[in-house]
Amino acid sequence: MRKIIFLIGILSSLSFVRVNEFNKNTIIQIKPESKLEILGTTNINKFECNFNFLEIDKPVPLFFQKKGKKIYFKKATLVLKNSCFDCGSRGINRDFSKLLKSNEFPLILLDLKEIEKKEATTEALVEMTIAGISKTYKIPVKVTENKNYLVTGNLDLNIEDYNLKVPKKMLGLIVVSEMIKINFNLILKKC
């Protein structure tokens, strides 16, 4: 009986080692030279809002598990303060903040769910939360590794998907398009 209990104990401990063998974690720092820009248009002009990465001073922990060609992430959330976007002038910054309902929802959350390496591309599954509404997107990304990791990509987004009202100016003469483009060029350093 003691041998059986001993054997069960060894098998149990080996099974935990086997499961945790593929679980990994790391910490990354987003370098301040990184870029995240939101590009939009109106019926008469264009605008650009850039995120200030100097405001992200805390490293981001990543917990992940590899399975085949996919990497699954747990709690890999990038928190962006709406107030850290600069659109070029106080008036546009104020309109952008109002559009995002910043008084009620001051943060944008980007939660990385998984990455899948395909033949010619890599796809990231990201859940984005804006103004309290979450949507999931598959985003083609390019990952370059040298001293740091460079992750680049873009996403076309309809702001009405987040129940955001398209702003109008000058009694409706200037109308912002509901479609925006998000470009990112993230420089990630492993800590």
Rank of each mutant, 00 (worst) to 15 (best):
I71L: 01
N23L: 01
L164T: 04
D161T: 05
I27E: 15
I187L: 14
A120C: 03
E127F: 07
F6V: 03
G153H: 04
I28T: 02
F73C: 05
K190Y: 07
D86T: 08
R18L: 06
E104Y: 07
Y149R: 15
G88A: 02
K165A: 05
P167Y: 05
K101Y: 06
N185F: 08
L39P: 05
I56G: 08
V175T: 15
L78S: 02
F47P: 09
L110W: 08
I71H: 02
L39A: 09
L36D: 00
K35N: 02
T42L: 08
P59R: 00
A76W: 00
V19E: 07
M128Q: 01
T42G: 05
K189W: 04
V176I: 10
E119S: 08
N20M: 10
K113E: 15
D161M: 09
N103V: 13
T26P: 05
L99Q: 12
I159K: 06
E55Y: 07
N43C: 12
I4H: 00
F51H: 01
K67R: 12
E55Q: 12
I4T: 00
E119Q: 11
F47I: 01
T152W: 11
F63S: 13
R90L: 12
K181F: 07
S134F: 05
L150E: 09
N163V: 06
K165C: 02
S102W: 03
L62H: 03
L186F: 11
N148P: 00
K58C: 02
I115F: 09
V166G: 13
K58Q: 05
D95E: 13
K190M: 11
S177H: 13
N45G: 10
S97G: 01
C84Q: 13
A120V: 04
L11K: 11
E178V: 03
K58G: 05
N146D: 15
N154C: 02
E21D: 13
Q65V: 03
F184H: 04
V175D: 12
P32N: 11
S34T: 00
L7G: 06
I133V: 10
K147L: 15
P59S: 08
L164M: 05
C191P: 15
G88S: 02
L78G: 07
I56W: 03
S12G: 15
V19N: 09
K69F: 15
E33M: 07
Y149Q: 14
I71S: 07
P59F: 10
V143D: 06
K168W: 00
L110A: 15
L11W: 08
V176L: 02
S97W: 07
I5H: 14
L150F: 15
L100N: 03
T121A: 12
D156K: 09
E145F: 11
F184R: 07
L157D: 07
D95A: 08
L164V: 04
D161P: 01
L54W: 12
D111W: 09
I28Y: 12
F63Q: 14
T122F: 02
I92D: 01
T41Q: 14
F96E: 04
F85K: 09
P106N: 08
T42V: 09
I92F: 07
Y137Q: 14
K46S: 06
M170H: 11
L164D: 08
N25E: 15
P106S: 10
E114H: 01
L7I: 01
T121W: 14
L173S: 14
T152P: 03
S177C: 06
I8G: 06
F53C: 03
T121G: 03
I187E: 14
K118V: 14
I159F: 07
M1D: 15
E48P: 09
